[in-house]
Amino acid sequence: MILAIASKELRSLFISPLAWFLLALIQIILTWVFLGRLDAYLHVQPQLQQIANSPGFTEIIVTPVFAMAALLLMMIIPLLTMRLLAEERKNHTLVLLVSAPIAISEVVIGKFLGLMLFISGVIAFIAILSVSLLAGGTLDSGLLISSILGLFLVACCFVALGLYVSSLTAQPVIAALSTLGILLCFWVLDMLDSGQTEWIQYFSILKHFKQFNSGLLDSFSVTYLVLFTLFFIVLTIRHLDGDRLYR
Protein backbone atom coordinates (compact mmCIF):
# COMPACT_ATOMS: atom_id res chain seq x y z
CA MET A 1 0.00 0.00 0.00
CA ILE A 2 2.87 2.29 0.89
CA LEU A 3 4.39 1.38 -2.46
CA ALA A 4 1.20 2.26 -4.33
CA ILE A 5 1.33 5.77 -2.85
CA ALA A 6 5.06 6.07 -3.46
CA SER A 7 4.80 5.06 -7.10
CA LYS A 8 1.85 7.40 -7.65
CA GLU A 9 3.90 10.25 -6.13
CA LEU A 10 6.87 9.42 -8.32
CA ARG A 11 4.70 9.28 -11.41
CA SER A 12 3.04 12.60 -10.73
CA LEU A 13 6.49 14.13 -10.19
CA PHE A 14 7.56 13.12 -13.67
CA ILE A 15 4.28 14.24 -15.25
CA SER A 16 5.12 17.82 -14.34
CA PRO A 17 7.96 19.63 -16.10
CA LEU A 18 9.21 20.90 -12.72
CA ALA A 19 10.92 17.63 -11.79
CA TRP A 20 12.67 17.35 -15.16
CA PHE A 21 13.73 20.97 -15.02
CA LEU A 22 15.13 20.67 -11.50
CA LEU A 23 16.89 17.43 -12.38
CA ALA A 24 18.59 19.13 -15.34
CA LEU A 25 19.45 22.20 -13.29
CA ILE A 26 21.08 20.18 -10.50
CA GLN A 27 23.04 18.18 -13.03
CA ILE A 28 24.30 21.25 -14.91
CA ILE A 29 25.38 23.09 -11.76
CA LEU A 30 27.09 20.09 -10.22
CA THR A 31 28.85 19.12 -13.42
CA TRP A 32 30.06 22.71 -13.66
CA VAL A 33 31.44 22.59 -10.14
CA PHE A 34 32.91 19.17 -10.84
CA LEU A 35 34.72 20.31 -13.98
CA GLY A 36 35.92 23.48 -12.25
CA ARG A 37 37.45 21.47 -9.43
CA LEU A 38 38.96 19.00 -11.88
CA ASP A 39 40.58 21.88 -13.71
CA ALA A 40 41.95 23.31 -10.45
CA TYR A 41 43.30 19.92 -9.50
CA LEU A 42 45.14 19.50 -12.77
CA HIS A 43 46.76 22.91 -12.21
CA VAL A 44 48.12 22.12 -8.78
CA GLN A 45 48.89 18.46 -9.48
CA PRO A 46 52.65 19.00 -10.03
CA GLN A 47 53.05 20.80 -6.69
CA LEU A 48 50.91 18.21 -4.89
CA GLN A 49 53.16 15.42 -6.05
CA GLN A 50 56.05 16.94 -4.09
CA ILE A 51 54.12 16.95 -0.81
CA ALA A 52 54.13 13.74 1.16
CA ASN A 53 50.66 12.47 2.01
CA SER A 54 49.02 15.03 -0.28
CA PRO A 55 45.24 15.33 -0.63
CA GLY A 56 43.93 13.27 -3.55
CA PHE A 57 41.12 13.41 -6.06
CA THR A 58 38.44 12.71 -3.57
CA GLU A 59 39.25 15.56 -1.18
CA ILE A 60 39.81 18.13 -3.87
CA ILE A 61 37.09 17.25 -6.38
CA VAL A 62 34.45 14.99 -4.89
CA THR A 63 33.95 16.56 -1.45
CA PRO A 64 33.21 20.08 -2.73
CA VAL A 65 30.74 18.67 -5.25
CA PHE A 66 28.84 16.94 -2.44
CA ALA A 67 28.95 20.08 -0.29
CA MET A 68 27.46 22.01 -3.18
CA ALA A 69 24.88 19.27 -3.73
CA ALA A 70 23.73 19.54 -0.11
CA LEU A 71 23.16 23.27 -0.52
CA LEU A 72 21.36 22.76 -3.81
CA LEU A 73 19.08 20.12 -2.33
CA MET A 74 18.29 22.52 0.49
CA MET A 75 17.02 25.04 -2.05
CA ILE A 76 15.27 22.56 -4.33
CA ILE A 77 13.60 20.09 -1.98
CA PRO A 78 11.08 22.68 -0.71
CA LEU A 79 9.87 23.04 -4.31
CA LEU A 80 9.32 19.30 -4.52
CA THR A 81 7.75 18.79 -1.10
CA MET A 82 5.38 21.75 -1.35
CA ARG A 83 2.71 19.92 -3.29
CA LEU A 84 2.88 16.59 -1.43
CA LEU A 85 0.05 17.34 0.97
CA ALA A 86 -0.86 20.99 0.40
CA GLU A 87 -2.04 20.23 -3.11
CA GLU A 88 -4.09 17.25 -1.94
CA ARG A 89 -5.82 19.59 0.46
CA LYS A 90 -6.28 22.32 -2.13
CA ASN A 91 -7.76 19.93 -4.72
CA HIS A 92 -9.86 18.11 -2.10
CA THR A 93 -8.21 14.79 -2.94
CA LEU A 94 -7.05 14.15 0.62
CA VAL A 95 -10.59 12.84 1.24
CA LEU A 96 -9.89 10.02 -1.21
CA LEU A 97 -6.89 8.86 0.80
CA VAL A 98 -8.63 9.29 4.15
CA SER A 99 -11.74 7.37 3.06
CA ALA A 100 -9.71 4.52 1.61
CA PRO A 101 -8.97 1.54 3.85
CA ILE A 102 -5.40 2.64 4.60
CA ALA A 103 -3.82 4.30 7.60
CA ILE A 104 -2.64 7.91 7.51
CA SER A 105 0.83 6.71 8.44
CA GLU A 106 0.94 4.66 5.23
CA VAL A 107 0.01 7.74 3.20
CA VAL A 108 2.69 9.87 4.83
CA ILE A 109 5.44 7.25 4.61
CA GLY A 110 4.46 6.47 1.02
CA LYS A 111 4.79 10.10 0.04
CA PHE A 112 8.10 10.39 1.86
CA LEU A 113 9.46 7.31 0.11
CA GLY A 114 8.23 8.43 -3.29
CA LEU A 115 10.15 11.67 -3.09
CA MET A 116 13.19 10.02 -1.54
CA LEU A 117 13.35 7.64 -4.52
CA PHE A 118 13.54 10.67 -6.77
CA ILE A 119 16.24 12.26 -4.61
CA SER A 120 18.14 8.97 -4.55
CA GLY A 121 18.24 9.22 -8.32
CA VAL A 122 19.81 12.66 -8.04
CA ILE A 123 22.38 11.33 -5.57
CA ALA A 124 23.10 8.38 -7.84
CA PHE A 125 23.93 10.80 -10.66
CA ILE A 126 26.37 12.64 -8.40
CA ALA A 127 27.93 9.33 -7.40
CA ILE A 128 28.33 8.33 -11.05
CA LEU A 129 29.97 11.69 -11.72
CA SER A 130 32.49 10.98 -8.95
CA VAL A 131 33.07 7.39 -9.96
CA SER A 132 33.95 8.57 -13.47
CA LEU A 133 37.22 9.81 -11.92
CA LEU A 134 38.30 6.19 -11.65
CA ALA A 135 39.25 6.48 -15.29
CA GLY A 136 42.28 8.52 -14.27
CA GLY A 137 43.24 7.31 -10.81
CA THR A 138 41.94 5.81 -7.59
CA LEU A 139 39.21 7.12 -5.33
CA ASP A 140 39.01 7.17 -1.58
CA SER A 141 35.93 4.96 -1.52
CA GLY A 142 35.39 5.41 2.23
CA LEU A 143 35.15 9.18 1.87
CA LEU A 144 32.88 8.82 -1.16
CA ILE A 145 30.53 6.44 0.63
CA SER A 146 30.31 8.59 3.76
CA SER A 147 29.55 11.63 1.59
CA ILE A 148 26.80 9.73 -0.22
CA LEU A 149 25.34 8.53 3.07
CA GLY A 150 25.52 12.04 4.52
CA LEU A 151 23.81 13.57 1.51
CA PHE A 152 21.09 10.95 1.67
CA LEU A 153 20.46 11.57 5.37
CA VAL A 154 20.29 15.36 5.06
CA ALA A 155 17.94 14.95 2.09
CA CYS A 156 15.73 12.78 4.36
CA CYS A 157 15.68 15.63 6.89
CA PHE A 158 14.77 18.22 4.26
CA VAL A 159 12.00 16.05 2.81
CA ALA A 160 10.54 15.19 6.23
CA LEU A 161 10.46 18.85 7.23
CA GLY A 162 8.98 19.86 3.87
CA LEU A 163 6.33 17.15 4.18
CA TYR A 164 5.31 18.43 7.60
CA VAL A 165 5.08 22.05 6.50
CA SER A 166 3.09 20.93 3.46
CA SER A 167 0.59 19.24 5.76
CA LEU A 168 -0.06 22.52 7.58
CA THR A 169 -1.41 24.55 4.69
CA ALA A 170 -3.53 24.28 1.56
CA GLN A 171 -1.24 26.59 -0.41
CA PRO A 172 1.76 24.86 -2.01
CA VAL A 173 3.64 28.15 -2.46
CA ILE A 174 3.34 29.00 1.20
CA ALA A 175 4.55 25.51 2.06
CA ALA A 176 7.59 25.94 -0.20
CA LEU A 177 8.52 29.35 1.18
CA SER A 178 8.09 28.33 4.80
CA THR A 179 10.15 25.18 4.33
CA LEU A 180 12.89 27.16 2.64
CA GLY A 181 12.75 29.75 5.41
CA ILE A 182 13.09 27.13 8.14
CA LEU A 183 15.92 25.39 6.31
CA LEU A 184 17.73 28.72 5.91
CA CYS A 185 17.37 29.29 9.66
CA PHE A 186 19.02 25.91 10.24
CA TRP A 187 21.75 26.96 7.84
CA VAL A 188 22.34 30.26 9.63
CA LEU A 189 22.78 28.34 12.90
CA ASP A 190 25.82 26.89 11.24
CA MET A 191 27.41 30.32 11.01
CA LEU A 192 26.92 31.34 14.63
CA ASP A 193 30.44 31.21 15.85
CA SER A 194 30.68 32.80 19.25
CA GLY A 195 32.00 30.50 21.96
CA GLN A 196 28.95 30.86 24.21
CA THR A 197 26.44 29.51 21.72
CA GLU A 198 28.41 26.59 20.43
CA TRP A 199 25.71 24.14 21.50
CA ILE A 200 23.32 25.72 19.02
CA GLN A 201 25.48 24.44 16.23
CA TYR A 202 24.53 20.92 17.16
CA PHE A 203 21.12 21.68 15.69
CA SER A 204 22.51 22.69 12.32
CA ILE A 205 21.75 20.05 9.71
CA LEU A 206 24.58 21.08 7.44
CA LYS A 207 27.05 21.04 10.31
CA HIS A 208 26.34 17.37 10.69
CA PHE A 209 26.66 16.92 6.96
CA LYS A 210 30.15 18.37 7.12
CA GLN A 211 31.16 15.51 9.38
CA PHE A 212 30.16 12.99 6.73
CA ASN A 213 31.68 15.14 4.04
CA SER A 214 35.06 14.97 5.72
CA GLY A 215 34.84 11.22 5.99
CA LEU A 216 33.85 11.16 9.62
CA LEU A 217 31.03 8.76 10.42
CA ASP A 218 29.93 10.26 13.73
CA SER A 219 27.23 8.25 15.48
CA PHE A 220 25.91 11.48 17.04
CA SER A 221 25.38 13.00 13.60
CA VAL A 222 23.71 9.87 12.26
CA THR A 223 21.40 9.75 15.27
CA TYR A 224 20.58 13.45 15.01
CA LEU A 225 19.67 13.28 11.32
CA VAL A 226 17.63 10.08 11.70
CA LEU A 227 15.78 11.47 14.73
CA PHE A 228 15.12 14.74 12.92
CA THR A 229 13.54 12.84 10.02
CA LEU A 230 11.46 10.58 12.26
CA PHE A 231 10.33 13.53 14.38
CA PHE A 232 8.85 15.37 11.43
CA ILE A 233 7.29 12.27 9.88
CA VAL A 234 5.57 11.50 13.17
CA LEU A 235 4.47 15.15 13.48
CA THR A 236 2.95 14.97 9.99
CA ILE A 237 1.02 11.80 10.82
CA ARG A 238 -0.18 13.31 14.08
CA HIS A 239 -1.25 16.51 12.38
CA LEU A 240 -3.25 14.74 9.67
CA ASP A 241 -4.87 12.47 12.23
CA GLY A 242 -5.69 15.51 14.32
CA ASP A 243 -7.50 17.05 11.36
CA ARG A 244 -10.15 14.40 11.71
CA LEU A 245 -10.56 15.10 15.40
CA TYR A 246 -10.43 18.82 15.92
CA ARG A 247 -11.43 20.56 12.72
Binding site: N91, H92, I102
Partner: peptide, 29 residues
Protein backbone atom coordinates in the same frame (compact mmCIF):
# COMPACT_ATOMS: atom_id res chain seq x y z
CA UNK B 1 -13.73 1.51 5.35
CA UNK B 2 -13.25 -1.44 2.99
CA UNK B 3 -17.07 -1.72 2.84
CA UNK B 4 -17.54 1.95 1.98
CA UNK B 5 -17.54 3.93 -1.21
CA UNK B 6 -17.71 7.70 -0.85
CA UNK B 7 -18.24 10.51 -3.28
CA UNK B 8 -17.74 13.83 -1.44
CA UNK B 9 -19.35 17.08 -2.51
CA UNK B 10 -16.29 17.96 -4.56
CA UNK B 11 -15.17 14.81 -6.39
CA UNK B 12 -11.61 13.89 -5.31
CA UNK B 13 -9.88 13.63 -8.68
CA UNK B 14 -6.27 14.05 -9.74
CA UNK B 15 -6.59 16.31 -12.76
CA UNK B 16 -3.21 15.31 -14.19
CA UNK B 17 -4.02 11.60 -14.39
CA UNK B 18 -5.93 9.75 -17.10
CA UNK B 19 -9.16 8.03 -16.14
CA UNK B 20 -7.52 4.59 -16.27
CA UNK B 21 -4.51 5.67 -14.23
CA UNK B 22 -6.75 7.24 -11.61
CA UNK B 23 -9.08 4.25 -11.30
CA UNK B 24 -6.04 1.96 -11.17
CA UNK B 25 -4.65 3.96 -8.27
CA UNK B 26 -7.97 3.86 -6.43
CA UNK B 27 -8.18 0.10 -7.04
CA UNK B 28 -4.74 -0.29 -5.49
CA UNK B 29 -5.79 1.82 -2.50
Amino acid sequence: KAHLGYLPEIPPLYMDMTVDEFLGFVAQL
